[in-house]
């Protein structure tokens, strides 16, 4: 029984951390229409920076600053925000494909750098030597995990409340205005590039927060944690849950993480041994199909955006008879 509860806590912690990441992406994509093709880079920047800043000194790579944990976590968020600021500055004034390609490139380069630069973050072996906060007081057992889950849950709720207020504020209305019709927003005297940059950086800071918590939870991060898979999973969570709806984002995170875990378990349990090698391929096909299927049949997601948005001003290519 304790085993089941313990597993549920473990599952819920991971799902909640991912839900925070999905909320960050929702601010970028759902509310502002910014495509982030490299979610994992910002998530990873948060994880790596938190562990490097908060960890004990390790021979061979940067780190061991042993910062007070909340400061380390803030440092992780700042690292993700800084990365987003640089990428955003270069791409947000250009047409939207550039952001998609550049962010995708950031993710490739980030993973590549972490894998190769041993002096920086331990290379393929990853960052070790991180002590989870309060571990000495609480131990490594169920109690610690339960408390950690509670903290993650509080952060998830706080992030949710912050974003709900942000979206309802005049700034949130501006974001949607820019998403719907950039020219109209510009004619109101607003600088869309600056507002988009703010939204992109804020969303990435939240992604960095999720990454920092993820790194803390495992007390370890390696290039295996920053593979493109995570980007696809987080997208699927948002698209299934409903882009633009924060509750949908959280719901999607739990649903897709549950489905991913269950499919992985079912494949390892029931698939023939010789097919085990292909478990990953099957899961990728499933997640690809979920993304494509949702976009084809229910693009608004399971919990659609509630707000009535202004109509699009431009005639899309389709309406021109394509």
């Amino acid at each position: 029984m304790i085993g089941v509860i313990s597993y549920l806590v473990f599952f819920a912690t991971t799902a909640s951390i991912l839900a925070i990441a999905v909320l960050g992406l929702n601010l970028q994509w759902g509310n502002t229409g910014l495509f982030n093709g490299g979610v994992v880079a910002f998530f990873g920047a948060g994880a790596y920076a938190t562990l490097i800043l908060g960890g004990t000194p390790q021979a061979g790579h940067l780190g061991g600053f042993e910062l007070f944990y909340p400061l380390a976590l803030l440092g992780g968020m700042a690292a993700a925000g800084l990365l987003a600021w640089i990428v955003g500055l270069l791409t947000l004034r250009l047409r939207h494909d550039y952001l998609a390609i550049a962010t995708f490139g950031v993710a490739v380069a980030f993973e590549n750098l972490m894998r190769n630069a041993e002096w920086l973050a331990g290379g393929a072996k990853g960052v070790r030597g991180f002590e989870r906060p309060l571990r000495e007081a609480l131990g490594d057992g169920f109690l610690y995990n339960l408390l950690f889950f509670a903290v993650v849950l509080v952060i998830l709720i706080a992030t949710y409340l912050f974003l709900e207020r942000l979206v309802a504020s005049p700034f949130g209305r501006l974001l949607r205005a820019i998403r719907e019709d950039e020219e109209a927003a510009q004619s109101l005297g607003k600088n869309p590039t600056k507002i988009r940059l703010t939204a992109f950086v804020t969303g990435s800071v939240i992604l960095g927060l999720a990454g920092g918590l993820y790194g803390t939870f495992y007390a370890f991060v390696s290039p295996q944690d920053v593979l493109p898979t995570l980007t696809f999973q987080i997208w699927a969570m948002l698209i299934v849950g409903g882009a633009g709806n924060n509750r949908g984002a959280i719901f999607g995170a739990f649903l897709i993480w549950g489905a991913w875990t269950a499919s992985g378990w079912a494949l390892s349990r029931f698939a023939p041994v010789e097919a085990q090698l292909y478990t990953g391929s099957v899961q990728f096909i499933l997640i690809g199909s979920v993304i494509v299927g949702m976009l084809m049949w229910r693009p608004q997601g399971l919990l659609p955006e509630k707000l009535v948005v202004s109509q699009r001003g431009k005639t899309p290519l389709v309406k021109q008879g394509v």
Binding site: H96, I285, G288, V292, M296, P299, V318
Partner: peptide, 20 residues
Amino acid sequence: VREKGQELSMVFASFGMALI
């Protein structure tokens, strides 16, 4: 996906197709 509306969603769809 084009006909469903958002042109931007095409990028997601293309990633999904790439995975498949």
